[in-house]
Design a protein around this nucleic acid. Structure first.
Lengths: 358, 358
DNA sequence: TTGAAAGCGCTAACAC
DNA sequence: GTGTTAGCGCTTTCAA
């Protein structure tokens, strides 16, 4: 009889709809099934430390949760608790370089580990998009936001960020008090030169970038410091500037060779690549004729050059990790708020085969 | 007098606390300020089509919203509406390659454009992490999830995904009915060979990968198809397999040269890089002695090789865009649900200087 | 055209 | 120990 198709509304689980997926079981359902109140269920769900729950009640609740396949609704939790477990990450470029990906990766893992989830926004540096992203984040009640850039430089923070706990990653704002996490360019530059010095080199060229940046200044200072510590006098004629790409490396090669240097530190791996090519074209061998050190440890490239390139690693992953660590520190202990600081993350040397022992 | 410090609780905006940030203005506040009810405010906020609001009331509301700097609380909206504007993206590797970043980028932009925000999770292929990520997503009431891999291959979908609308990106599951978005390897391979053919080459080698994958099979088939269309007989002696890295390219170089081919299609840009190096070492010139075509259009590399490499682009960005497009299509028109399909995204050729016109 | 009120699923007093 | 209940901020009937 057709009438049978008219199901009893009470017996039909009214939650089974919603896009045909995700039939949501609620706290109330669990409570009913376990024969307890919702608060009891809530209590056992949240492992409240002080909360004493009867061994028996807890067991029933757990059983019900399991049987019903209950999953808490974080939106409701957030609403009730007045806070969410979101962290927003705005990146100025997640695709044009492999770097940003590492930052995101690190941030995501650390956030996850701490029970937070990462919301991401890509702005391509567009100020307006940035503003909208931040607003969107705030609408989502993020606990804080990470503002990151793909290359280390100074920025001026979007004004919207003052309304929310923020940490800067791979950039810093000289006019602001936020905490920033950046690579330690100085120690990185020093490590680069040190690899060559340790291998016995004394005449070490330095091919820097033409564009002004903390990387340019910091690495150069590090290089000079390493020389000084080794008692090697600095020699301006060994220091060059070039475009920080393969082309730059190719163009500067001749001059570097002319100096008679036995080793060279490059501003980055790409410059080193250009140098490799130029040297090859001249029939020169690496590391026999010239030892080369890069910077960045750019994945996919450095390890697979011929010979594999010794370089210094830019700690993007770490940057992301430490970024959320600092952020959560600020978020979870509000007393720290406003306490500014700049964290410098070490850039470890990566020894491969482009350095010849003298 | 000290007593003055005891502020009148009523006059002190009780929302000003919350971590010292983000003083949230609520709908109710706006309603009060505008002298209307919350429902009226809600109505104007949502530009409800049918809802007729007095010109006057609307103006007052808008004014209040503006003055108070009101922003809706999406958690509350989500709760009330029974759905969120989240899309979850699980990636098996966001950092180890530049590729995943592009997918995320595309997905993020498209999601954003449609009013959704992207939640991301990185799993490094760990099945357990994957499960937890998906559960976390579901707890956050995501509207759907994108499951993506960094290289195109066949997978078996995590079972948890059956509970939520899903689309696969850069992978496909032969045993499942979900919609998948993948690169069109066949047309890509064809485009690669076509570049050489168009430049007048007839003896074209093909250096494929040793590892089985849709890329390997598809590109080869495309290469053969292009030859056939051009009336060039396939020649097994021109086809090689090698490791899909720089090393592979270096090792195979000699054999390729021996064939007397005037052009060669490489499985990917990295193989092409290896070939470049090996050729340089032999004193051979590209493209004069050999024309080379890569695959992937790997950023940072291809355009800056010397000479810049002609290649075929892997459409990761597009993959991400189309992925969320398809997802939202499924989500927003539930009638489509269960309708399986595989979308192949074109891989456009990118002409640069590694091909010599004959 | 507008307002009142009943939830959405959960948390956190507070009472028993 | 466990249950009751009042919200969290918003949407959405349903009346007025």
């Amino acid at each position: 009889m057709a009438v049978q198709r008219i199901a009893d509304p009470a017996s039909e689980n009214s939650r089974e709809r919603k896009n045909g997926k995700r039939s949501s079981v609620t706290l109330k359902d669990v409570a009913a099934a376990a024969g307890t109140s919702v608060s009891t269920v809530s209590l056992v769900m949240n492992h409240k430390p002080g909360a004493r729950i009867g061994k028996d009640a807890r067991a029933r609740v757990l059983k019900a949760i399991d049987e019903l396949g209950y999953r808490p609704n974080t939106l409701a939790q957030g609403l009730a608790r007045g806070r969410s477990n979101f962290i927003g990450l705005v990146a100025d470029s997640i695709a044009t370089t492999p770097f940003a990906g590492q930052i995101i990766h690190g941030a995501q893992e650390e956030a996850w580990k701490r029970g937070y989830v990462l919301l991401i926004a890509n702005t391509e540096g567009d100020r307006d998009l940035e503003r909208r992203a931040i607003e969107e984040f705030m609408e989502h009640n993020v606990s804080g936001v990470i503002y990151s850039t793909w290359y280390h430089h100074e920025i001026t923070m979007p004004p919207e960020l003052t309304q929310v706990t923020t940490v800067l990653v791979n950039c810093s704002d000289p006019n602001s008090e936020v905490t920033a996490v950046v690579p330690d360019e100085f120690r990185g530059g020093k490590a680069a030169a040190q690899m060559l010095i340790d291998a016995g080199h004394r005449r070490i060229a330095f091919v820097n970038s033409t564009s002004i940046s903390p990387a340019r200044t910091g690495r150069r200072a590090g290089y000079l410091a390493a020389l000084e510590e080794a008692g090697i006098p600095a020699d301006e004629s060994l220091m060059f500037d070039t475009m920080p790409y393969q082309e730059g490396g190719m163009r500067i090669a001749e001059q570097v060779v002319q100096t008679g240097a036995t080793g060279v530190c490059c501003h980055n791996d790409r410059v080193a690549m250009g140098l490799y090519d130029a040297l090859r074209d001249r029939g020169l061998r690496i590391p026999d004729d010239l030892s080369v050190v890069g910077f960045d440890n750019q994945e996919v490239i450095a390890a697979h050059m011929s010979p594999p390139l010794s370089t210094v690693q830019l700690p993007h992953y770490e940057l992301g990790v430490v970024g959320v660590k600092m952020l959560l520190e600020d978020v979870e202990s509000p007393d720290r708020a406003g306490f500014s600081r700049t964290i410098r993350i070490d850039c470890p040397p990566v020894m491969r085969d482009s350095i010849r022992r003298l």
